[in-house]
Design a protein around this nucleic acid. Sequence first.
DNA 1: CGGTTGACTGTTT
DNA 2: TAAACAGCCAACC
Length: 115
Amino acid sequence: MRRGSKPTCHDLSPPRDAHLRILAVIRDIPAGRVCTYGRVAEGAGLPGRARLVGRILRDSPLSFDVPWHRVVNASGRISERSGSGMKDQRHLLTAEGILFMTEDRIDLAEYLWEP
DNA sequence: CGGTTGACTGTTT
DNA sequence: TAAACAGCCAACC
């Protein structure tokens, strides 16, 4: 390896590393449970950055490999987005045995998983 | 380089 | 219970 000069990908933590940690946390959410954006961020060592979690699920192609549908907002609702993946998310959660408390709300007291 | 945006959240009306 | 507000910060003009 060339000694020199170039910083490499293992030095400190570029934003990129934060993305991977967030995806790693989401990957650990067990079936039949959910986690909130804020808790995922916290579990990744990034307190207060819930929006970053949402951004990554929206932008990163790697999000296809994690149970993205188990991430809901702090109100126990599915966050709105440009497309209509919302209905799919609800269907996936229901298929895992999660029951909705009301038309659009999940009971976090029962299903919330914490990293 | 500065303003806008947004799969968010806790607090305050 | 619900809406409005303020704080948040990386990505994107």
